[in-house]
């Protein structure tokens, strides 16, 4: 077996009294597209800053491609690419100047590595004389990704690249990442959007500085501990409170146009739920057994239910 691309052991980081990272450990394999999934304030950015040598942990160790993030930070910086959550290019340089700047500080040229960035950079190349500060959100994101890639890094760190981005552009961005992965780049990407987990090879679910689970998305949803039902009726507002008072219910959460009801035991039938709702005068009831998705699992873990 190859050594992992990223190895994180017992990382702890606090700011004054706030524990941002509380004993974090996991590994990312070479060539993996690995997702760090969790809401704002979970500790994602602190972990990224430690792994990219911009912040020093209180304790614990992290190794990226064989380099210790503290001792070997200079060497490490040459082989990683980092796209921070906030747009951090030079707004008063043009698109091309930004890219050339990043290429130059890594002792390379745009021409040398053009092949790696071309599918992404081509989309903004018509605007290469435009100041970066005047680009639209989607174009800024593509430029930032191009700049993070121009020195052909072995590991790419993307901190919330899709936050505040619409559903269409998010989908396109993940398609770009899938393409990059084929070029043997390990990618660690963070996101608050639970549905993006399915695009990753493996994910770590993170909340309040702790890792809740590390697994493939397929395995995580299989671990869901209860039976799960999608329920619809003609009065969705009342349905939520009716389901909450159902004696076997563990949790009740709205999910788009249905409500997900999680139930304690497995030998319950859809007809039991339907009968109960009829006794509550609900109409047009639809009950369907479903598989959990990542968001169901995340909420179950937040409620301290082990998967």
């Amino acid at each position: 077996m190859d050594n992992p691309a990223i190895s994180i052991e017992n990382i702890i980081k606090s700011y004054d009294k706030v524990v941002a990272l509380d004993d974090i450990s996991f590994e990312v394999d070479k060539g993996e597209l690995f997702g760090l999934i969790g809401p704002d304030g979970a500790g994602k950015t602190s972990l990224f800053r430690i792994l990219t040598t911009l912040l020093i942990q209180d304790s614990g160790n992290a190794i990226v491609e064989g380099f210790n993030v503290v001792k070997d930070y200079k060497k490490l910086r040459t082989i990683i690419g980092y796209m921070p959550g906030r747009f951090s290019l030079y707004p008063d340089l043009t698109v091309e100047e930004n890219l050339r700047f990043f290429a130059t500080i890594f002792n390379t040229t745009i021409e040398d590595n053009y092949d790696l960035i071309k599918t992404i950079y081509r989309q903004i190349e018509p605007f290469k004389k435009r100041l970066a500060g005047n680009l639209s959100g989607g174009m800024k994101q593509k430029l930032a990704l191009s700049c993070a890639l121009i020195h052909k890094p072995e590991v790419l760190f993307l901190d919330e690249p899709t936050t505040g981005v619409d559903a269409v552009s998010r989908k396109e961005f993940w398609e770009m990442l899938k393409e990059l992965q084929k070029k043997d780049i390990t990618i660690l990407v963070s996101t608050p959007y639970m549905d993006e987990a399915s695009m990753c090879d493996r994910v770590a679910l993170i909340q309040n500085g702790r890792i809740l689970e590390v697994e493939t998305p397929e395995e995580i949803v299989k671990l869901y501990p209860h039976s799960l039902w999608a329920v619809i009726s003609s009065d969705m507002y009342k349905l939520e409170s009716d389901l909450q008072s159902f004696e076997k219910s563990v949790s009740v959460y709205r999910f788009g146009d249905s409500i997900h009801l999680s139930v304690k035991d497995d030998d319950i039938y859809g007809s039991d739920i339907k009968e109960y709702l009829e006794s509550k005068n609900q109409n047009k009831i639809k009950v369907e057994k479903i598989d959990a998705n990542i968001e169901d699992c995340f909420m179950a873990l937040m409620n301290n239910n082990d998967l």
Partner: peptide, 8 residues
């Protein structure tokens, strides 16, 4: 609700 956890 951008970035907010799923329960909140």
């Amino acid at each position: 609700t951008g970035g907010v956890d799923p329960i909140t």
